[in-house]
Design a protein around this nucleic acid. Structure first.
Lengths: 118, 118
DNA sequence: TTGCACTAGTTGGCTTTACAAACTAGTGCA
DNA sequence: TGCACTAGTTTGTAAAGCCAACTAGTGCAA
């Protein structure tokens, strides 16, 4: 079974995920997409990554700077701003809240199943 | 602090949440929205609930039947189909996978912060 | 008896998110 | 010269969620 998140479930959390990755270490689009794939978070295409980075820069959450690469085209490295670090914290809080609510619902649903099977 | 999920983060998971609620016990739109609010999953407006129920019915995940109410307008009760129960199971699997991936990322980000603060 | 509050559902247009696909362009190797 | 890989931009599209306006039923209070 190919375990992977459906892209639908990523909606709304991708920006938070990118902020966490970039706060750990500034990176460029192509590198970020490779990192995300390592976590199994579906195969985020560049048609998603690059426009999202641009949007996040417009929002003041990250800043990008073009830097030459030793082998290949220039790379645009992004790093988090102060606003981005705050947005990351807010995301983590909201995530844990969502996590609790959904897990509670799942648990109740499973208890309900057990009752009916008894 | 008003702890609540941002509506953005709900994208993609609302259908799964509704399936869990409806499998526990068939319910109608107005009742579902009240239930969801109890879990703190933001205040889902009816402009979201009702069209989503219609879409889910078109997908064959639930079925709705109008029933008269003792006090007030008729209610449309929805219950899960076999396909809906399977979709609920798939959602729960994907949810736990997403949960693991995001939490791993968050943990790594926090370890990274500790290192820098040492 | 009129009006208001609450319940219950539908619909149209809107924004945001994510994505596919096509494009440009650099390096390096066969 | 052409191909593979790297790296980024842009255009158009679909889906998710939401606001606002609408219809319509019950029941209570002024």
């Amino acid at each position: 079974m190919k375990s992977n998140t459906s892209s639908q479930m990523l909606k709304g959390i991708l920006q938070g995920v990118m902020l966490i990755i970039l706060e750990k270490k500034p990176d460029y689009g192509y590198g970020i997409s490779k990192q995300i794939n390592q976590y199994g978070l579906s195969d985020i295409p560049k048609g998603t990554i690059y426009p999202l980075l641009t949007t996040m820069e417009k929002r003041g959450l990250i800043e990008g700077k073009m830097k030459p690469s030793l082998a290949g085209p220039d790379r645009k490295y992004y790093f988090t701003t102060v606003a981005g670090i705050q947005a990351k914290k807010d995301f983590i809080n909201e995530w844990h809240f969502l996590e609790g609510a959904v897990n509670q619902l799942i648990d109740e649903g499973e208890n309900n199943e057990n009752k009916r099977n008894d």
